[in-house]
């Protein structure tokens, strides 16, 4: 895939929506009278790990939520393998920002993971031993098997994040979308999460994560999507994650020294 810079207008894009596990076209979302995301196109590469980066308030999470239909966009469409997202939900697993959850809810960790199986269970399908085993296995993959019986609000931030990743694993999806999975988590959790995500990628799944730590982009991800209200750039880390593009996205908010470090790590 070649790098496409928004500044280089004028060449028609090939419509490669049918192949992409997540393709967004013309997405505009607005809170009140100011668009948070304006006319954004995004084409996620199958089988890759993509980071969505950009400064605070650049519309990273908003883009993801609008693509999933959690927010209603002012304009724009999102497709999974060429079909509308609404018909393809079984292919998608989403890990929300932890803030959106009712932590006081009466539910245990293992119940939360089981929720990942609800779509395949339907309204009344019985939860069988195989389902419980599957939930326990997903919990073990994120290293949380010892906490299965705890109430969800009693865990630390990092532990909660791992439980939500386990729920996403239980969904057996093809496309994993994560909203700031590393925000406010401890180093051990960050390591555990990234290794799970890499194993998903190695199994042929597609991973997209909103990410805010520029220093780990090159280490963790294959592709990068840079946004600041509009799409700034999109492509493999080696090509799109450059100081010049970051300067455009972050403006003066990025110190030169920081840029050099990124340039070196990405280079």
């Amino acid at each position: 895939m070649s790098i496409s810079l928004a500044a280089e207008h004028g060449k028609p894009l090939v419509d490669d929506r049918a192949q992409s596990p997540l393709a967004i076209r013309g997405m505009t979302v607005s809170y009140g009278q100011k668009p948070a995301v304006f006319s954004v196109d995004m084409t996620v590469r199958a089988g890759a790990m993509t980071a969505i980066i950009g400064p605070n308030g650049a519309g990273k999470s908003t883009l993801l939520k609008a693509a999933l239909g959690i927010l209603t966009p002012l304009a724009g469409t999102a497709t999974v393998l060429g079909k509308p997202v609404a018909t393809q939900r079984h292919r998608i697993a989403y890990v929300p920002q932890r803030a959106s959850v009712d932590w006081d809810f009466p539910t245990r960790v293992i119940d939360v993971v089981l929720m990942g199986l609800y779509p395949q269970l339907g309204l009344l399908g019985r939860i069988r031993a195989t389902h419980r085993a599957k939930a326990a296995e997903c919990l073990a993959r994120v290293g949380m098997e010892d906490f299965a019986q705890r109430q969800i609000g009693q865990l630390s931030g990092g532990q909660q994040q791992r439980v939500f990743l386990a729920r996403a694993l239980a969904q057996d999806a093809e496309l994993y979308l994560l909203d700031e999975p590393f925000a406010g988590v401890d180093a051990a959790t960050e390591k555990a999460i990234i290794s799970v995500l890499k194993s998903l990628r190695d199994a042929g799944k597609t991973v997209v994560a909103v990410h805010h730590d520029l220093s780990t982009v090159a280490e963790y991800f294959d592709d990068v999507f840079i946004i600041n209200t509009r799409r700034i750039a999109e492509g493999p880390v080696a090509e799109a994650f450059t100081p010049r593009i970051l300067q455009e996205a972050y403006g003066g908010r990025l110190a030169t020294a920081q840029m050099d470090a990124i340039g070196a790590s990405a280079g």
Binding site: H9, G10, K11, P12, L13, G26, T28, S30, P35, F38, S39, L74, A75
Partner: peptide, 14 residues
Amino acid sequence: VHLRQGLLALAQGQ
């Protein structure tokens, strides 16, 4: 919003 997006799409032949 729609007009602006439409014009940009026209300009880029999308």
